[in-house]
Amino acid sequence: APAIVRADTKKTYHWKMTNAYGPGSPFYVEGPGSPTDFCRKVEEMSGGRMKIQHFAAGELIPALEGFNAVASGVVEMNAGNAYFWAGKIPAAQYFTTVPFGMNTQGMNAWLYHGGGLELWHELYAPKGLIAFPMGNTGVQMTGWFRKPINTVEDFKGLKMRIPGLAGKVYAELGVAVRLLPGGEIFPALERGVIDAAEFVGPYQDRRLGLQKAAKYYYTTGWHEPTNVTELMINKSAWESLPEDLQAIVKAAAAACNVESQAWCESVNAEALTDLVENEGVIAQPLPDDVVARLKEVTEKTLTDMAAADPDTARVHESFMAFREQHKAWAAISEKTFLAL
């Protein structure tokens, strides 16, 4: 009823947002299209009717505790990546990125218009949550290697910092997977405790100084062809918002999704040139047969994962069906254009 909505429009909503990333991180916390930018946008668009106080990781709660905080309703929102919750909702991986899955255009197409977002909401609803895409790094990089990778054999005994699903795939090929917190990557790679490390992309990697520790930069990340930032919201808090504020939140999230990716695209272009021209970095893709082998193992790993959990199976099917369709189109659109 309109009367209720009018009553709500007088109220100012004071919300809190936690973040899985630490203070100051570009893209993940600060900068165009970042979560702090999202909070600013919402306040401006709502004429100050909705104020969101942002807390970087560690300020209110530790990095990966946002799920519990939002689910219990103490905090209304959390910024992070869905795949952090894979231990709680196995299918969550698919809402961030899928190895050999789709690029950012394909991912957005699936989420917004291919049934992805509906599945996301359906899976989160029983936990009292709802989520929207709120950012994207674009394609990430395979990572930094101290020695070149020429054949699949070179993976045998290679010590690599690589978390998540990709770690499992690498491990199948004989890589010794090392889990390390972000701050320990540089000293470990520099001293050779690890031979290789994956982080984000040229801009963020340069900030960590990884180019001082390893010179072989393998590009186009097969393991993260896109990477969606998740805006997670407590469902009952969401439902208590008047419709116009809900629309503002959705629009601000979508705006950040575009803007953050555009920003990454521009700073990565600059950083890559700098790395190659001024830091002596050798940037190149993995050899074709290596990629083919990684793809084989990935497909099997994904199928196994889907078989183990009915929810994952549903999301997997939807994602893969969409990918099939999108692939044919991308092959004659983007791929053809980039080859011109």
Binding site: G87, K88, K127, G164, G167, K168, A171, L179
Partner: peptide
């Protein structure tokens, strides 16, 4: 209630 495990496959 979530039967929570490691987010890392193989964890």
């Amino acid at each position: 209630q979530l039967m929570e495990g490691s987010p890392d496959p193989g964890g």
